[in-house]
Design a protein around this nucleic acid. Structure first.
Length: 326
DNA sequence: TTGTGTTTTATTGCCTCC
DNA sequence: GGAGGCAATAAAACACAA
């Protein structure tokens, strides 16, 4: 017994099928049952022409696939065998291709089954209303599965497209990061060369008896550090030209473009000296480090990369090269 | 012919709605 | 509380390769 107090029967729905499909043995075509204008239910049904249709149209010109009926259609004594086949308790009977096609068309019109429509369909097809209901229920389940597969395919296509974009951007990001590291190394080498040069100058000046410390010299005349600044600027100019000549085509990310959009790329390396104190100039001459760069670069947050698999920011360990000069 | 995977029909239990 | 829908599942029917 079915749940919910329902009473199901699966053995009583073949009356029409027996009559209809047994034509070779009992030639009583029931086409008239489905022809419009006849006295059959569907022809007078308010659903005909809307959600209902005639089984005749489906039956006509439709070759049966291998079905239970085919197995018995041309045999002698088919009455007994047919009855035997359909009266086996607990045996499942597949619907004929015609019946399925009819149900499919009905389903296409409306995939929900109102009670009246169910009764009419059952009468038309010679099935139990319960069988029609079950067929619609299973058909809705299949439709839903197919729909899910379609949705999945669409989502997969979207995902693949986004992933391709992400991969492309990641590669570009890696390339730019490598470039930054390379340029930073060059800056550091320049700085070290400059420091060595200053050291040798200091050693030479220490041999002269009245040589003043650089800081004092700067405070009194400012000549040494100014010369250093000029020398640094000359060095940096060569580096700068390398930076902007190396591959300007992809300086379109936030860092580069934000710098270039200021209209004067040289501001990175050429702070307005009129705003500098002597000490600041001194610092510039000693470190050569672009402290002037970093405040500008702070527009880009390198410490908080996006939380996806594609790390557009520099990882924490990558910050090492930013702090080497401090 | 047979084993195996797939499809189809039917059942069961739970849920919602009226 | 009954009717009906749905998800999960069973089981028969079917398809097909070996």
């Amino acid at each position: 017994m079915a749940g919910g107090g329902r009473v199901y029967s699966s053995s009583g729905g073949a009356s029409f099928l027996l009559q209809n499909q047994r034509g070779s043995c009992a030639p009583e075509p029931l086409d008239s049952l489905f022809l419009s204008g006849s006295s059959n239910v569907s022809s007078t049904s308010p659903f005909l022409g809307s959600s209902m249709m005639s089984f005749e149209g489906v039956r006509r010109g439709n070759g049966l696939k291998r079905s239970a009926f085919q197995q018995y259609e041309h045999e002698d004594n088919c009455d007994e065998e047919f009855d035997e086949y359909f009266h086996q308790p607990g045996k499942k009977r597949r619907l004929t291709a015609d019946q399925v096609q009819f149900l499919e068309k009905s389903f296409d019109l409306e995939n929900k089954l109102e009670p009246e429509r169910k009764i009419l369909l059952a009468k038309d097809l010679g099935l139990q209303p319960r069988q029609v209901a079950i067929w619609f229920q299973n058909r809705r389940a299949r439709w839903k599965t197919k729909q899910l597969e379609k949705d999945y395919d669409v989502l997969q296509a979207d995902y693949n497209s986004l992933k391709a974009d992400c991969d492309s951007i990641c590669k570009e990001n890696d390339k730019l990061k490598a470039e930054v590291v390379q340029l930073s190394d060059r800056l550091r080498l320049k700085d070290e060369e400059m420091a060595n040069s200053e050291q040798s100058d200091t050693n030479k000046s220490n041999q002269e008896p009245q040589q003043m410390p650089i800081a004092e010299s700067v405070s009194s005349e400012g000549e040494v550090s100014k010369l250093s600044v000029v020398a640094c600027k000359e060095d940096l100019t060569s580096v700068k030209s390398d930076i902007f000549d190396s591959d300007s085509s992809h300086y379109t990310d936030g860092v580069h473009s934000s710098l270039l959009e200021r209209g004067d790329s040289s501001y990175i390396f050429e702070p307005d000296q009129s705003d500098l104190s002597q000490d600041e100039e001194d610092n510039l001459s000693k470190t050569l480090l672009p402290p002037y760069i970093f405040p500008k670069l702070e527009d880009v947050d390198y410490t908080d990369p996006p939380a996806n698999s594609c790390n557009f920011g520099f990882p924490v360990e990558d910050h090492a090269f930013w702090s080497w000069s401090y």
